[in-house]
Amino acid sequence: MNPILVIAKRELGGYFASPVAYVFLVIYLLLAGFFTFMVGGFFERGAATLDSFFVWQPWLYLFLVPAVGMRVWSEERRMGTLELLFTMPVSPWQAIIGKFLAAWAVLALALLLTFPLVFTVNYLGRPDNGVILAGYLGSLLMAGAYLAIACMTSAATRNQVVSFILSVVVCLFLILCGWPPVTNLLVQWANPAVVDAVASFSVMAHFNSISKGVLDSRDLLYFASAIVFCLFATSVVLRTHRG
């Protein structure tokens, strides 16, 4: 078996052997339901869409994804198993991808378990299921990007709390950087090119356009490059710590 799969399998087993996966799944589903129905006014809208579900995704993930990702590397470093892993015949990037995929699979499972929403909206009306599918794809990609950030901060410290806070801050920055109060703040002292560049890092713009059903290659590229960049940064951080 490929070492990536061996590592991913072990990680997945680890999530389900500990309460991490169950707590995450339950809390995610409870909060998603609460925000969709109670705060988002799913029924009051009178429209056959899942907008009231997707609009909360960036905020739910802001706290829940770093909670899943914070242990990925800091746990290995704290327990000393990093030394075991990196003296086995496996390259660092195989380990990084294997662990990332396992955590991403947990997030994907959580997303998959929101399927009753899709049934409900199809039962009540005639939604555009293409848009819903695009919304799920956008959510999955956004979860992947947040997770890659969490992996990166997790590699930087053996303390899970520090890792959690750091990744929440970075994710929050990605949510807020396209928001007018933030861009207005920047406009006062930075030149427009810098403001545009910062605003283009915003996860919101890219997520919103995907969840509207517009599959623009730029949005897909945004998430893909965020994941690749953060995982690459993870490998650099891990290498520096071993030095």
């Binding site: 070492p3 061996v6 500990s18 327990m79 198993t81 030394e83 075991l84 086995m88 015949p89």
Partner: peptide, 26 residues
């Protein structure tokens, strides 16, 4: 390699851990 302090994945069973090590070794 047996590292100092003999680390292992404490969330696994002994068989699970040894199985993991074996699979990593192909």
């Amino acid at each position: 390699y047996l590292p100092e302090n003999a680390p292992s994945y404490s969330d696994m069973t002994v068989t699970g851990f040894l199985g993991f090590a074996a699979e990593m070794r192909g």
